[in-house]
Computed example of a mutant assay.
Amino acid sequence: MFNLEWFNKLPVKILIVAFVIVITAYFIRKSVRIFFDKTSFLDENREETLMHFTDQVIKVLGLVFFFIYVFSHFFDLARLVTGSVVVAGALALIFQHIIRDYIMGLAYLFERQINLGDYVIINGNKQGKIEEISMRHLKIRQYDGYLYTVSYGSINELQNGNRGMRRVNESLILNYRQNPDEAFKVMEEVARICNEKYNEYLLTDLDGKPVEKFKFNQITELNVDYKGHRYSLSGIVKEAYFVDASKRVRYELALAAYMNNLLMAENGDIELNKRPGSQPSV
């Protein structure tokens, strides 16, 4: 005969609760996905952003409910929190920052300031593509390949490049032995060529004038990874042409570096044989 007392054992209760939480989370996510598939009042990118955020919320709530249930069998949580001034103060301090991050995250999300895949600049110094939107932070993939995580509460300034325009920002990292004067001439010539060949990619104002032409920004970073200096070129283009414009600008930079025998930054102690006194031929 089946023994019902077996279900009253704590390990079994914990497993049952965990199973119920997993099944409930699955059906909630499935229901949200079906809802978005059957409706069309949001664009696909926005739907993916909300779906991704919903997944994060469900995971966090599921873990919170599970741990509260487990700890409630070993501790009197209400007495533990209210009976210790130190613990209560520490929890209040922690939750202050957490709640702030949650509130600001919801504000960014529901005010439609960010979406998955958007190109953003955080606090003026970190830029890249949004790869993850969670309840407390953003993760952006920078051009150097690093994944940068920033909490919503630490965001003082957010620039979104997916609002009708994008800034192409490409660069060459040249060896520190490269003559800057020669490099400047080459980069300025590349900017001129890009403005001539890819003028239709540039975003224009109401008068038909480019908002920001391709321009050479001179040396934007010194001693990059102890290899060389960064020479950057940028321009504001229409959002639809961003990927193609970036590829073409990179091609022009690579071609100019080859044609002018510029000293590229390299790993290791590689012998560099640049002809002294050579002049740009672009």
Rank of each mutant, 00 (worst) to 15 (best):
F2T: 09
W6N: 03
F7N: 02
K9L: 08
P11H: 03
V12K: 11
K13N: 11
K13G: 10
V17M: 04
A18C: 12
I21S: 14
I21L: 10
I23F: 04
F27I: 05
R29W: 08
K30V: 15
V32Y: 02
F36M: 05
D43V: 06
R46I: 03
E47Q: 15
H52W: 05
H52T: 13
H52M: 10
F53H: 12
D55I: 15
I58N: 08
K59C: 09
K59A: 10
V64G: 05
F65M: 11
F66G: 14
F67I: 13
Y69A: 10
S72I: 00
A78M: 09
L80Y: 08
L80G: 13
G83M: 10
S84C: 13
V86R: 07
V87W: 09
I98C: 13
I98G: 12
I103W: 10
A107K: 15
L109H: 12
L116F: 04
G117P: 08
G117R: 05
Y119T: 13
I121P: 01
G124N: 02
G124Y: 01
K129E: 11
E131T: 14
I133E: 00
R136E: 04
I140W: 00
I140V: 11
S151K: 07
Y152S: 02
G153W: 02
G153D: 02
Q159L: 08
G161S: 09
L172R: 00
I173T: 11
N175Q: 12
E182L: 02
V186I: 03
V186Y: 00
M187A: 00
I193F: 07
K197F: 05
Y198H: 06
E200G: 13
L202E: 07
L203D: 02
V211P: 00
I219D: 09
I219T: 08
I219G: 10
T220P: 03
E221I: 12
N223E: 06
V224F: 03
K227C: 05
G228M: 03
G228E: 01
L233N: 06
V237C: 01
D244M: 04
S246M: 15
R248V: 14
R248E: 12
R250C: 08
R250I: 11
L253N: 11
L253Y: 01
A254H: 13
A257E: 07
M259H: 02
N261K: 15
L262Q: 00
A265T: 11
E266H: 05
D269W: 01
I270W: 10
L272A: 02
N273R: 14
P276C: 04
S278C: 13
Q279V: 13
P280M: 02
V282C: 09
